[in-house]
Computed example of a mutant assay.
Amino acid sequence: MDISIKLLIIMIAVLLTGLSAGLCFTWTNAVTPGIGRLDNVSYLQAFQAMNRAIINPTFMVVFFGAFIAQLVSVILWKNASSTIILLLIAATLLYFFGLVIVTIFGNVPLNELLDQTNIANASAEELQQLRNQFEVRWNRFHFIRTITSTLSFGSLLIALIHIAKYQTNS
């Protein structure tokens, strides 16, 4: 296969993974601490609004596109040095299990629980109970996503360095 196609695919993987890691980092360091300071009604309403807004075509392309581009990169670079292939596999596994799977089976069910709640009609006690059930667990899952997406991004960057060396020596 033409080297330019292989490089293009891995660059797409790096870009999309970097965007995902940046989104996770921003939520961990600014969004969740910021809204965490709000009262229960404001917190739950803000989270509902953000969860509804984030499900859009751009997010879906970045979120799933990163994994697809990583997977394709593993296939395209399978004959590269063991260091390169191991870094690409590590990046793909970190992203898949730490971001995709944790999101689908950890954060999304909590988002759906929150989305099904009519906050305007809930009592103060119900709002506190919902926030207690949601906030700590969601943040814990999200921290996993932040760490693993960042490690995935870093692994891809290191793989690129090795690819540059590999190409120079070929």
Results as ranks from 00 to 15, higher is better:
residue 16 L to E: 08
residue 18 G to R: 01
residue 19 L to P: 00
residue 19 L to R: 05
residue 19 L to G: 13
residue 21 A to H: 04
residue 21 A to G: 00
residue 23 L to I: 15
residue 26 T to G: 05
residue 26 T to S: 07
residue 27 W to N: 10
residue 28 T to Q: 13
residue 29 N to E: 04
residue 29 N to T: 13
residue 30 A to N: 01
residue 31 V to Q: 05
residue 32 T to V: 14
residue 33 P to F: 06
residue 34 G to N: 05
residue 37 R to L: 15
residue 37 R to W: 07
residue 39 D to S: 14
residue 39 D to C: 07
residue 40 N to D: 15
residue 40 N to H: 07
residue 41 V to P: 01
residue 43 Y to V: 04
residue 43 Y to P: 05
residue 44 L to N: 00
residue 44 L to H: 04
residue 45 Q to I: 11
residue 46 A to T: 15
residue 47 F to Y: 15
residue 50 M to F: 11
residue 50 M to E: 00
residue 52 R to Q: 15
residue 52 R to W: 11
residue 54 I to F: 10
residue 55 I to A: 12
residue 55 I to G: 09
residue 57 P to Y: 04
residue 57 P to M: 09
residue 58 T to V: 15
residue 58 T to C: 12
residue 59 F to A: 04
residue 59 F to W: 07
residue 60 M to I: 15
residue 61 V to W: 02
residue 61 V to P: 00
residue 64 F to Q: 05
residue 64 F to I: 08
residue 65 G to R: 10
residue 67 F to A: 02
residue 67 F to S: 10
residue 68 I to C: 05
residue 72 V to F: 05
residue 73 S to E: 08
residue 74 V to M: 07
residue 74 V to C: 02
residue 75 I to Y: 08
residue 76 L to V: 05
residue 77 W to P: 07
residue 77 W to S: 11
residue 77 W to E: 00
residue 79 N to E: 15
residue 81 S to L: 02
residue 81 S to V: 01
residue 81 S to N: 04
residue 82 S to L: 13
residue 83 T to W: 03
residue 84 I to Q: 01
residue 85 I to W: 04
residue 85 I to R: 06
residue 86 L to A: 11
